[in-house]
């Protein structure tokens, strides 16, 4: 290989997010005829998961993988580029906003100026479906049921659940499963049916609630060290950019198959019951999000600017998508009955 990169993600080896970087590396190697090789390692191999972007900026890692939710400590706007509800924009719509609605420019500004990593090239990749509400002991039937529930979630959703009255317990990643097993926390959310199955959440809890506005999806990021990026010839740069787009589409397609299979397996083999989140609870989630987002927007101009850009884009894009997409439950009811 003419170029070889070390890439570390912020995810566990079995996570779909991590696998997406492995798949990206395969695509790039194939497209470049082996001229650019990327060695992909999971979170913690060289640096802690939360420090990936910092390490890429320093050049310890040639490239990295993570998402904006990992950056909320550095500046809360990170979540707006990852999983926040974005005025109803799902991940694919968010990708559209980033590429064609000014989001990419804002994200570049966020990374290089707001959080001060000027030696990093960033790319958006692999939009995911909405994340389930989570695993519960008893179904949530009304907003009142959330009051006092011991719940575990990361990032800005912590603030949202607190706003809704949950007792959010911060438990380190390595303690989530034992804490659930023993009841230190009552309920938790992780990422997707497949990821939740792999982590073993369906072994511990049987009530799986969805959908949810807590995290309407997720968009991943590829970070590349500026010097490593600049030394690539133009054709390899183009290959990396287009491989990221190809993997984004491929991720979504794979994701649908894998998660559909995972959910079916959990329902049929493991006795998991999927419970639909009541509409009132979802409305309350959006109300709580609004409080949290407005609080940050008032304190921070950049945050407010990103929200404004999203609101304008979502007004048309979500407007189109909501009106043009036939409701899926009508089809589901028809074909499941037959």
């Amino acid at each position: 290989a003419d170029y070889s990169w070390t890439l570390q993600t912020g995810y566990a080896a079995g996570d779909e997010q991590h696998q997406s970087y492995v798949a990206l590396a395969e695509k790039i190697e194939a497209m470049s005829g082996g001229r650019l090789e990327i060695d992909v390692s999971p979170g913690g191999t060289f640096v802690p998961a939360f420090e990936v972007i910092d390490a890429v900026n320093d050049g310890i890692l040639d490239a990295g993988g993570g998402d904006g939710d990992y950056l909320v400590g550095r500046h809360p706007a990170g979540s707006l580029f990852a999983s926040s509800p974005g005025f109803g924009m799902d991940s694919i719509t968010l990708m559209s906003w980033m590429r064609y609605g000014g989001g990419d420019e804002l994200f570049d500004e966020y990374v290089s100026e707001v959080i001060g990593f000027s030696d990093v090239q960033v790319f958006a990749m692999s939009p995911a479906l909405a994340q389930p509400f989570g695993w519960f002991e008893e179904p949530i039937e009304s907003v009142a049921d959330i009051e006092g529930i011991k719940f575990r979630t990361p990032g800005l959703p912590v603030d949202v659940m607190e706003e809704m009255g949950a007792a959010v317990v911060t438990v380190p990643g390595s303690e989530v499963v034992p804490a659930l097993e023993r009841g230190v926390i009552e309920s938790a959310e992780y990422f997707s049916p497949k990821a939740d199955l792999t982590l073993g959440l369906s072994d511990i809890r049987k009530i799986y609630m969805m959908p949810s506005y807590l995290q309407i999806g997720l968009v991943l990021n590829v970070y590349v060290n500026e010097a490593k990026w600049q030394e690539l010839p133009e054709d390899l740069k183009a290959i990396v950019e287009h491989a990221i787009m190809a993997e984004s589409a491929d991720f979504y397609w794979r994701y649908l198959r894998d998660n559909a299979e995972a959910l079916a397996y959990m329902e049929e083999e493991q006795g998991v019951t999927v419970v639909r989140t009541p509409d009132d609870v979802m409305r309350a989630q959006l109300d709580a999000w609004e409080v949290v987002l407005n609080r940050h927007a008032e304190e921070d101009e950049f945050f407010a600017g990103v929200l404004e850009s999203q609101r304008a884009y979502a007004d048309q894009a979500v407007g189109l998508k909501a009106r043009i997409t036939p409701p899926l439950n009508i089809a589901l009811e028809k074909y499941r009955e037959e």
């Binding site: 566990a12 080896a13 079995g14 996570d15 999971p42 913690g44 990643g173 390595s174 303690e175 499963v177 034992p178 097993e181 199955l197 792999t198 982590l199 073993g200 072994d203 511990i204």
Partner: peptide, 22 residues
Amino acid sequence: IPPSVLLVVLGPVMGVSIPKLF
């Protein structure tokens, strides 16, 4: 013997569920 950080890290790398590994 569970709980153990080692198992929590090992499970996802090997692709086995953590409670089962426990």
